[in-house]
Computed example of a mutant assay.
Amino acid sequence: MISRITGFLAAIAMAATLAVPPAHAQDQAASAASTAAVEAAPVIDAAPAEPAPAASKPADNPYSLANIVAHGNVVDQVVLVILGIMSMGSWYILVVRLWDTSKLASEAKDVRANFFKKASLADGIKGLKEESAFRYIASTAVEASEHHEGALTENIDHSSWVTMNVDRAVADVNSKISGGLGFLATVGSTAPFVGLFGTVWGILNALTAIGVAGQASIDKVAGPVGAALIMTAIGLVVAVPAVLGYNWLVNRNKNVMSQVRAFAGDLHGVLMGNRAIAKR
């Protein structure tokens, strides 16, 4: 196109040269030639260059957990909420019971070292912390030993009466440090199935959408099914710590409660020994 325009302008310049007086023919020819050269030069766009487009942000993964939380259906979100509650409850129980058993083990060590070296049971009890489980057991045992009266309780011998009260106090301590273990067992046994339910529901919705769209290519199937399988993975992530924590706490409780029962037995022996001495 540029060559055609150049040829057309050159023809006009030649006609003008023939029409002007001979005195100006050379000047006009040079002018025409320069004009033709200018016209023949490629046209340079003077418009400012457009700025380079900014680097685009990576596209959000439509099959990620965040997308399920933001755009999932009601069933998916309910399943995630249930699994979240299970997980938070499990970790809360693990931390609290770990603190309780550690505290009780520390108290047991201190009791073994100092309690029975006191001049009297009263002094031993005063040396224990107010919230100590061992102080609760000792106070219960001493109170039962000192208050064995009444028409009904007199039918129970003194040793059996003290034993019954001490056993009840020990059972209270055991019940406190065992609280929440049932929840851990429930989470460990049901969380995988809750996650599996979310997976089945997600796959059902994905296959239904694929059937409606009439497209069964791998990119249409893999994404939704993969997103649904996230539910199963979350269920396992919730269940495994609950099962491991349950077994761990059960073993810790056995070890700690064996020390508590040993203290209760020793305390019972001291009370019976004191009573025998008092009768003399």
Rank of each mutant, 00 (worst) to 15 (best):
Y246P: 02
A23Q: 08
A54L: 15
V250S: 09
F183A: 14
N67A: 11
V250K: 11
E149K: 15
V79Y: 01
A222K: 03
P53M: 05
A276R: 11
L18C: 11
I93W: 00
D167A: 09
R135V: 06
W161S: 05
G245P: 01
V243M: 02
F263T: 05
W91Y: 09
D45Q: 06
L267S: 08
A59D: 03
I218G: 08
A141K: 05
L184V: 00
G188W: 02
L121K: 01
N73D: 13
I156V: 14
E143P: 12
G150F: 07
A10H: 06
A33L: 13
A11W: 12
V78R: 10
D110Q: 11
G179A: 08
Y136G: 15
I137C: 14
A276K: 11
V69I: 15
E143V: 09
K117S: 03
N67W: 06
A264H: 02
V170G: 04
A239T: 01
V243T: 09
N165L: 05
V75E: 01
A25G: 15
D76R: 03
A40K: 10
A206D: 02
L104N: 09
K109Y: 09
K129E: 15
V142D: 04
M272L: 09
V173W: 06
A33P: 12
H24G: 13
D110C: 09
H71F: 03
A36Q: 03
I2A: 14
W161A: 14
A16L: 14
M14C: 15
T153F: 14
Y136C: 10
S64M: 00
V96S: 07
V225M: 10
G180W: 00
F115P: 08
D266P: 04
W91R: 02
P192F: 01
L244F: 06
S145E: 08
A13K: 15
I230V: 11
K176G: 14
A171V: 04
K176D: 07
G179H: 09
E107H: 04
D157Q: 03
E143R: 13
V187D: 05
T208F: 11
M88A: 15
V225L: 12
S87A: 10
I68T: 07
A138L: 00
G7L: 07
N61C: 08
G223W: 02
I5A: 15
K117V: 02
P241Q: 03
F193C: 11
N274M: 10
G124K: 03
I137R: 09
L229S: 05
V38W: 06
